[in-house]
């Protein structure tokens, strides 16, 4: 039986020690899915125009990575090797459909805003990557933590990019209007004497700006965390 993994000695240990903490914190820094592994970039470009959009997307991805890892790990010893990938895809697609239906029922305008990108979580490399690399060989509890960690690692970058793009592109954050050319904004540039020169940067609203911002983030991350410099 080449394809059944030898059962671990302590299958059900739910302790939260150093190892488990590392599962959660590693993807946030040393092994971040976006800035280090450069996975899941496509959706990071598309949904980061507004902070709220990125927030919902992040929550959706955390949900999917966490449960996809958990279920795959639960089934890992009984999944036939020949259809391994298909089974993983079914699990991911199942979870994404659940997210889509939930959004449709409880946050319809947000569902319309995110349009196809919720469905495209299925093809997000982070999810399947973690299933193959981790969940197929580890216990459900550890896989769950790894899923959460990677989901959050992705989400944090998404939120940073979205915050930068919304603040400089639209002068607002999460819909709260900060600076712009009308009286709805906290600082009205048409009347303010100090900020009269300010104009929102239209480039930030366009897709290429996400490229620049993510690029800058990768650079900043490596400058700050010397461990990463020689990896690639």
């Amino acid at each position: 039986m080449a394809d059944t993994i030898v059962a671990e000695k302590k299958e059900a240990s739910f302790s939260f020690g150093k190892k488990e903490r590392k599962l959660l914190s590693d993807p946030l820094n040393d092994n971040n899915p976006i800035t280090v592994q450069v996975l899941g970039i496509c959706s990071a470009l598309a949904v980061t125009t507004l902070f709220n959009k990125a927030l919902v997307m992040s929550i959706a991805v955390v949900f999917v990575t966490m449960f996809a890892s958990f279920f795959t790990s639960l089934l890992r010893n009984s999944i036939p090797k020949q259809v391994r990938m298909i089974v993983q895809l079914v699990i991911i697609a199942f979870l994404v459909t659940v997210v889509e239906l939930t959004l449709k029922a409880f946050a319809y305008p947000m569902y319309k805003d995110l349009s196809v990108f919720i469905g495209l979580i299925i093809t997000n490399c982070i999810v399947m990557g973690r299933l193959e690399a981790f969940a197929m060989a580890n216990t459900p509890y550890k896989s769950l933590l790894d899923g959460i960690g990677n989901g959050i690692g992705y989400g944090v970058i998404l939120l940073i990019v979205a915050a930068i793009r919304e603040i400089f592109g639209k002068g607002s954050i999460g819909g709260i209007k900060l600076i712009g050319p009308s009286n709805e904004f906290l600082i009205d540039t048409t009347t303010s004497s100090i900020f009269g020169w300010y104009e929102p940067n239209n480039l930030m609203v366009l897709f290429p700006s996400a490229m620049f911002v993510i690029g800058a983030l990768i650079w900043a991350h490596r400058a700050w965390n010397k461990k990463l410099v020689d990896i690639s």
């Binding site: 394809d3 999944i79 259809v83 089974v87």
Partner: peptide, 12 residues
């Protein structure tokens, strides 16, 4: 190797 029947059963 898993037999074809087992794979079919699992998938179904």
């Amino acid at each position: 190797m898993h037999s074809t029947n087992k794979v079919l059963f699992f998938v179904l």
